[in-house]
């Protein structure tokens, strides 16, 4: 066989291999990534104008704007960086990092600059709104959804009272519905509706659970710390409720946390290498301690000692469905009389 023919066959082989790789790599993304022909559909007029106007220069313009936005942020010119990020988001709304960047600037940097608490919370809400918009413009994107969960978990910790008093369903339910549509039925999260009284951690736990389910549905290689944020957020929710004297609700959150830890245990069984040891270590360090705290609280909240012991035993033996059912029955005190707040860094049980 002559050399040109060999080169020809080698080239053809590469093309076929590339095609096979393309099919294999893109298959899991097909349900969540729209086809190019549909990319322009549903764009708001501003985004459509920006996209159409720049044409082939869109990517280049985004690169340059992105660089300037990062420069402005590094120099502390947060208003300029927000303005640039908003421009990028309008020009390339499927660039997921820019939504995170924008949300972070609004909720953290501009909130820091604001004077009073009300204005700080307003900037936090603006950041959440930007992140929600990013989630809606990028359905199926785990990263933005995870950032939304993180913002509630981390920054939301500064605004317990305000978050508690607000109804978040109107803003977050479209995100939850969008993610629910892409994940199996048994992993779906109930919409928040008009509910108030949810802590930032309760919202974060739900969003983290969605992000984990979404990553699994799209075969996205999620950092191994993220699934553990679900039980941790539920536990923090329980701690906040405990501090507010809502002891029975706190116990419910702790049971939810223990249930989420069981999923982590299953995940540890499937994992290998360093991830496995890290997940197992985290599980062992947290789960047993939380079970003991929950069982202790169950005994204290029971009007009838036998019922308290039954619930404590169910928690201790990880019969969590039974524990939930028992706690849902009548006869439990909503709070334990005579207790004082114990700060999170204090040792011991309640």
């Amino acid at each position: 066989m002559s050399r040109p023919v060999l080169i020809l066959f080698a080239g053809l082989g590469c093309l076929v291999a590339a095609q096979v790789l393309w099919f294999v790599a893109l298959k899991p993304l097909r349900p969540v990534v729209p086809a190019t022909a549909e990319a322009g559909a549903g764009l708001p007029p501003g985004e459509f104008a920006g996209t159409l106007l720049l044409g082939g220069f869109r990517g280049l313009a985004c690169d340059l704007l992105w660089m300037r936005a990062v420069g402005a942020k590094e120099s502390g010119r947060h208003y300029e960086s927000v303005a640039l990020a908003e421009t990028i988001a309008a020009v390339q709304p499927r660039f997921s990092q820019v939504w995170e960047f924008l949300a972070h600037d609004l909720a953290y940097n501009l909130a820091y600059e604001a004077e009073d608490r009300g204005a700080k919370f307003a900037w936090f809400r603006a950041g959440i709104a930007a992140n929600v918009q990013g989630c809606l413009r990028n359905p199926g994107n785990e990263r933005i959804l995870r950032n939304l969960a993180w913002m509630f978990n981390h920054k939301g910790d500064d605004f317990h009272t305000e978050i508690d008093a607000a109804a978040w369903g109107g803003q977050l339910d479209p995100v939850i519905a969008g993610a629910n549509a892409l994940i199996p039925a048994h992993r779906r999260v109930d919409p928040l509706g008009a509910r108030t009284g949810l802590s930032n951690f309760a919202i974060a736990a739900r969003l983290y659970a969605l992000a984990v389910a979404l990553a699994e549905a799209t075969a996205y290689d999620q950092p191994h710390i993220i699934p553990r944020m679900v039980p941790l957020a539920w536990e923090f929710d329980g701690n906040v409720l405990l501090g507010q004297g809502r002891h029975r609700e706190a116990l419910g959150s702790w049971i939810a946390s223990i249930a989420a830890w069981q999923e982590i245990a299953e995940r540890a069984a499937r994992a290998t290498g360093l991830s496995k040891s890290l997940i197992e270590e985290s599980y062992q360090r947290n789960e047993g301690r939380l079970r003991r705290r929950a069982a202790d609280l169950a005994r204290r909240l029971a009007s009838d000692p036998a019922a308290g012991e039954a619930l404590a035993s169910a928690i201790d033996q990880r019969h969590l469905a039974e524990a939930k059912a028992l706690l849902a029955q009548a006869g439990w005190k909503d709070h334990q009389a005579g207790t004082t707040i114990r700060w999170l860094d204090e040792g011991g049980t309640l």
Binding site: Y79, E80, E86, T87, A126, A130
Partner: peptide, 19 residues
């Protein structure tokens, strides 16, 4: 533009125009 108050919106808008 999404901002929490008038002065902030004004600052964002001027940044946007100049930039």
């Amino acid at each position: 533009l999404d901002a929490v108050d008038g002065p902030s919106r004004s600052r964002l808008a001027v940044s946007l125009v100049g930039g």
